[in-house]
């Protein structure tokens, strides 16, 4: 078990390094850097001026060196610029000071400076991440029980009318991407078009004060898309369990149907959905980006869109590190959780 977790951690670390390098390389391609120079320096800089601007700030060096510095395994650069000023990476690109540290990268907790939000990347990530965590919490609160109930009800009697109707509902929910359900929800429940103006169409006010009125629609929108998939998985696992020999034995013993479902089948049927729920996180991340943009809720996803749309390189890198980490961590938890939950694997 220990070896298994160690190997998984090793692969995870390698994946994280590769992914962050790819993002780093893509964001540090020449056209991106030129755009950065023009937005940060002067919009009418000549090509030569752009080159010196980038050179003075260490952008023109080898991408591997830059990546090492950003990660914090190589010492930050100190460059004597053509304009006479000596800049250091660890002094935030300004004049170097005595107490400047040698390494300053993600590993040292220095995530860089966001050019769009004009603040430290780490503090923005913390603040926006907290907003998204709140959204995710409520989404989970709605999605997981809803999906499990639908799946169990559909799966306990395979082929029945209940099963058919609930399966159709879950197909409908998987076929409705967030931008469709969100737009439909807003049009129906937040505008006067259908005389059902019950909720608010924006969630900006929910950042300080979550109410039923301003948070229902975003939470429902994200939850709906994931719900169908988890419900289908739960249904598949439930139908499989219901045909098992031990269920038939219980039935022949005369155990009531309710007890069979609740006491005997449910525990075993919920192992597979657990891994699915964990693996659903990357998809939720997508949903969060769409919903936060649509409802103007300034969380992590909204930050991603702003950073990517405005060529905010260090912010974008920070966002990708966090999202890649979330994805990989949930994969790891799902693997380990599966082993712990499944007695057959745990004992052998």
């Amino acid at each position: 078990m220990g070896l298994f977790i160690l190997r998984r951690l090793g692969v995870m670390l390698l994946t994280a390094l590769c992914l962050t390098f790819i993002v780093f390389w893509l964001t540090n391609l020449q056209p991106n850097l030129e755009k950065l120079a023009k937005t940060q320096g002067n919009a009418r800089m000549s090509d030569a001026a752009v080159e010196t601007w980038l050179g003075n700030r260490g952008y023109t060096r080898n991408v591997f060196v830059k990546y090492g510095e950003w990660l914090g395994v190589l010492p930050g650069y100190v460059i004597e610029g053509t304009d006479g000023e000596t800049r250091g990476r660890c002094a935030n690109n300004s004049t170097i000071t005595e107490d400047m540290s040698t390494f300053c990268g993600v590993l040292q907790g220095d995530w860089g400076y966001s050019t769009v939000f004009r603040d430290e990347v780490s503090s923005i990530l913390g603040e926006r991440g907290w907003q998204t965590a709140k959204l995710m919490f409520f989404v989970m609160l709605v999605m997981v029980p809803g999906a499990l109930i639908i799946g169990v009800l559909a799966g306990m009697r395979e082929g029945s009318r209940t099963d058919r109707s609930l399966s159709t509902v879950s197909i409908l929910s998987t076929a409705t991407p967030e931008y469709v359900s969100g737009v439909v929800f807003i049009a129906v429940f937040a505008t006067a078009t259908f005389n059902m103006q019950w909720f608010k169409g924006t969630a900006t006010s929910a950042m300080d004060n979550i109410t039923f009125e301003n948070f229902t629609l975003p939470v429902l929108t994200v939850a709906l898309y994931g719900m169908g998939y988890i419900a289908r998985m739960t249904r598949a696992s439930m139908t499989e369990v219901m045909t098992a020999q031990y269920i038939r034995t219980a039935r022949l013993k005369g155990v009531s149907f309710r007890n069979i479902v609740l006491r005997h089948a449910l525990r075993n049927a919920l192992i597979a959905p657990f891994t699915v729920i964990m693996l659903q996180f990357p998809w939720l991340l997508n949903g969060v980006v769409i919903v936060e943009t649509l409802f103007n809720y300034k969380g992590f996803g909204w930050t991603l869109v702003q950073a990517a749309g405005n060529n905010d390189i260090e912010m974008l890198l920070g966002v990708s590190v966090v999202s890649v980490f979330v994805v990989l961590a949930t994969q790891l938890i799902s693997d380990i959780g599966y082993v712990f939950l499944n007695p057959r694997i745990r004992i052998s």
Binding site: L19, L29, N286, V289, V305, A308, N311, S320, S323, V324
Partner: peptide, 18 residues
């Protein structure tokens, strides 16, 4: 590739600079 959030990948690939 699967560990990449799809939207991030799109934003990285489909910008005019790239």
């Amino acid at each position: 590739i699967l560990a990449f959030p799809v939207i991030l990948l799109f934003y990285l690939l489909v910008t005019p600079e790239i």
